[in-house]
């Protein structure tokens, strides 16, 4: 299929509808992560951080900023995208999308694009909030944005898969709370994984979030626990896995088309 034949009217329509659905709950969706971030800064940055001082030469308050943003990016991308596609399946309005002259790629573009947009907006809001608490200096702005976008898109794809897989609201909530949040905490959002004793440190290298946080932190401060190339490779690999799963879903019609 050539790009010229893309049904961009339809992509744009779904994208805007998704964004307006998010606007309906805009204040809720902003308030929660902003308040959470402020709490993290008070607790980790202020109370505990004042005793930790420096991690790898960076003030603790500044150190946790990339981790906090990553935490929001990951959880928001997964939950936005999963609800975005689960809702029409749940209300059965998905019939209209399936009957429309749309390719699978266009459906994914629209839903994943909208979810990723929202989580990037939230991430930027948190970044702005963080500047009130700690002085920030971002070394590689271009890379920071690239990591943000890559992570948002990858985990929105992952959320899209979960939204199609989930058969009820419990299943919808279980992956973000049972998988994403723990992996992010363990993945060095609030500490350097170099601080972990063995064998936890080595085990943690299996945690994909380690590579995301490390790469992201590198874009801020120029240092990371693992090389930035490895970080990119890992994110890219996870994205490839998600794309393969999405391709399989549309190929087989899994839970979308009987």
């Amino acid at each position: 299929m050539s790009a010229a034949k893309l049904n961009h009217h339809a992509i744009w329509t779904i994208y805007l509808a998704e964004m307006s659905r998010m606007r309906r709950t805009f204040w809720q969706s902003i308030a929660t992560p902003v308040i959470t971030t402020v709490l993290y800064f008070i607790v980790f940055g202020g109370a505990i951080g004042s005793r930790i001082q420096h991690v790898g030469g960076i003030g603790y308050g500044a150190f946790i900023v990339p981790g906090l943003i990553m935490l929001t990016l990951l959880t928001q991308s997964v939950s936005n995208a999963s609800i975005g596609i689960y809702f029409p399946i749940f209300t059965k309005t998905i019939y209209e999308i399936l009957a429309a002259p749309l390719s699978a790629l266009e459906i994914v573009f629209a839903y994943v694009g909208a979810a990723a947009t929202k989580s990037v907006v939230l991430a930027l809001i948190i970044l702005a909030t963080a500047t009130f608490f700690t002085p920030l200096h971002i070394q590689h702005v271009g890379w920071m944005i690239a990591f943000m976008l890559l992570t948002a898109v990858t985990f929105s794809l992952f959320g899209f898969i979960i939204g199609i897989w989930a058969q009820n609201f419990e299943q919808l909530a279980i992956i973000p709370s049972l998988v994403i949040t723990p992996l992010t905490f363990l993945g060095g959002a609030f500490y350097s994984i170099d601080m972990l004793p063995q064998p936890w440190r080595t085990l943690n290298l299996l945690n994909p979030v380690v590579y995301l946080v490390s790469g992201f932190r590198w874009s801020f401060y120029g240092t990371g626990e693992v090389g930035v190339g490895l970080s990119l490779a890992f994110t890219g690999m996870f994205m490839a896995i998600c794309l393969t799963l999405v391709w399989w879903i549309f190929k087989t019609g899994y839970r979308l088309k009987p």
């Binding site: 049904n7 009217h9 339809a10 744009w12 329509t13 779904i14 509808a17 659905r21 309906r24 209209e96 999308i97 429309a100 002259p101 749309l102």
Partner: peptide, 16 residues
């Protein structure tokens, strides 16, 4: 949660 106008306009858009 959508309005009548919006949901009908949405359908038109989705069909390109």
């Amino acid at each position: 949660f959508a309005t009548v106008w919006n949901t009908v306009a949405f359908s038109r858009g989705v069909f390109g």
